[in-house]
C-alpha cells in the first residue's frame, strides 16, 4: 500500500486542478464554431454559391462576428488579473499558444469584416454610403470575392486548430497532451457550424448539403476520437490513466452518453435517415450536435485538468 499525504491545500489546485471553469470550454466551443462558420462561408464564396440570393454566406459573417466577440468576452471573464489584459498585445511569445491565439483572434476580425462588407443591408448602406460604395466595388471583382473566401477558410482553419493546440501544448495534463486534439476540435467545430447553418439556412439545397457534410464530419469525429484513444492507450501510464478517465472513470458517463451518444451517434443516425429521405429534416439532429460540441469541450477541459502525472510512479 502507498499512502500519500500533503500539507498543501491551495484553492483551485488541490486536491485536483480546477482553475479553468465554464468560461474556457465555452470560449473553445465558440472559437471552434466560428472557425467552422468561416470555413463554410469561405467555401460558399469560393465555390460561387454566393451568387444565390439567400446564401447563408451573407449572414454567417455577422453571426461569426458576434459569436467570436462573445467567446472573447468569456475569455476575459476567466482572467484573474483583468486590468493587465492589454499585456497580451504588447508582446508575442512564440512558445505560448495563448499568445498565438491572442494575435490570431485579432486576425479573425478584419477577415470577417471583409466578408461582411460583401453584402451590407440597405438600411446600413443608406446610413453609411461609403461602405455601400466599397461593397459595390468589391462585388464587381469576382476574383476578389473568391480570395476573400480562401482567406476566410484559411483563417478559420487556423482558428479551429488553435483551440485544440492551446490545450495539447500543456504537457502536464496527459489527456490534453495529444497531437490529434487540434483535429478533433477542428472537425467538431466544422460539425457544429454545419449543424448551426443547417438550423438557420433559408436555402433548402444548402440545408441538404450541410446535413450531408455534417454526417461526414460526425463520422470523421468518431474516427479521430478512436485514434486519440489508441494513441493514449499505447502511451505512458499517465496517458493511459488519462484516457481511462473518459473511458471508464469519473467522466465516462458524460462522455459516452452525452458526447458520443447524444452528440454524435443519434444525430448521425437521424441525419443519415433524413438525407436518404426516410424521415423529414428536423431541428433535433443539429441541436443535438451543437449541444454535444459544447459538452465535448466541457468534458475535455474538466477531465484534462483532472488528469496529471502520477507522483507515485517515481516513488521508490
Amino acid at each position: 500500500m502507498i499512502e500519500f499525504s500533503t500539507t498543501r491545500h491551495n484553492p483551485l489546485i488541490d486536491p485536483f486542478l480546477h482553475t479553468w471553469s465554464w468560461q474556457i470550454p465555452l470560449y473553445l466551443f465558440l472559437g471552434g464554431l466560428v472557425a467552422g462558420m468561416m470555413i463554410i462561408s469561405g467555401y460558399f464564396l469560393f465555390s460561387g454559391r454566393y451568387k444565390e440570393t439567400n446564401c447563408s454566406c451573407y449572414y454567417l459573417p455577422r453571426m461569426s462576428f458576434l459569436l467570436i466577440s462573445l467567446g472573447m468576452l468569456f475569455l476575459f471573464f476567466d482572467l484573474e488579473h483583468k486590468q493587465f489584459v492589454w499585456r497580451l498585445y504588447t508582446t508575442f511569445q512564440i512558445t505560448s499558444p495563448m499568445s498565438w491565439g491572442a494575435w490570431i483572434l485579432l486576425l479573425v476580425y478584419p477577415v470577417l469584416l471583409a466578408n461582411m462588407l460583401l453584402r451590407i443591408s440597405e438600411k446600413f448602406g443608406e446610413k453609411y454610403p461609403f461602405l455601400k460604395n466599397i461593397s459595390e466595388k468589391m462585388n464587381s471583382h469576382h476574383i476578389l470575392i473568391r480570395n476573400i473566401g480562401v482567406i476566410n477558410m484559411l483563417v478559420g482553419g487556423v482558428l479551429g486548430m488553435y483551440t485544440g493546440i492551446l490545450l495539447s501544448s500543456l504537457g502536464a495534463r496527459p489527456l490534453w497532451n495529444t497531437s490529434i486534439l487540434w483535429l478533433l476540435f477542428l472537425v467538431s467545430g466544422l460539425s457544429g457550424a454545419a449543424a448551426f447553418v443547417h438550423l438557420i439556412a433559408k436555402n433548402v439545397h444548402e440545408r441538404e448539403l450541410l446535413a450531408k457534410s455534417d454526417n461526414g464530419f460526425l463520422i470523421i469525429e468518431l474516427f479521430v476520437i478512436a485514434m486519440m484513444f489508441i494513441g493514449m492507450l499505447t502511451n505512458s501510464r499517465a496517458h493511459k490513466e488519462a484516457a481511462m478517465l473518459l473511458l471508464s472513470g469519473p467522466f465516462a458517463a458524460s462522455f459516452w452518453v452525452l458526447v458520443i451518444g447524444l452528440g454524435i451517434v443519434i444525430p448521425l443516425i437521424l441525419q443519415l435517415l433524413a438525407v436518404s429521405h426516410k424521415i423529414h429534416h428536423t431541428p433535433v439532429a443539429p441541436i443535438l450536435v451543437i449541444i454535444g460540441g459544447i459538452i465535448l469541450r466541457f468534458v475535455i477541459v474538466y477531465a484534462g485538468e483532472f488528469s496529471h502525472w502520477s507522483r507515485l510512479i517515481t516513488f521508490k
Partner: peptide, 25 residues
C-alpha cells in the same frame, strides 16, 4: 505587473506549484 491571470502556467506545471494570489496574479 505583466501577469494577466490566464492560468495557462498553472495548467502547464506538473507539480501544482503555482496558485492564483487573491490579488489576481
Amino acid at each position: 505587473e505583466k501577469c494577466i491571470g490566464c492560468k495557462a502556467c498553472i495548467a502547464a506545471c506538473p507539480y501544482g506549484a503555482r496558485f492564483v494570489h487573491p490579488e489576481g496574479y
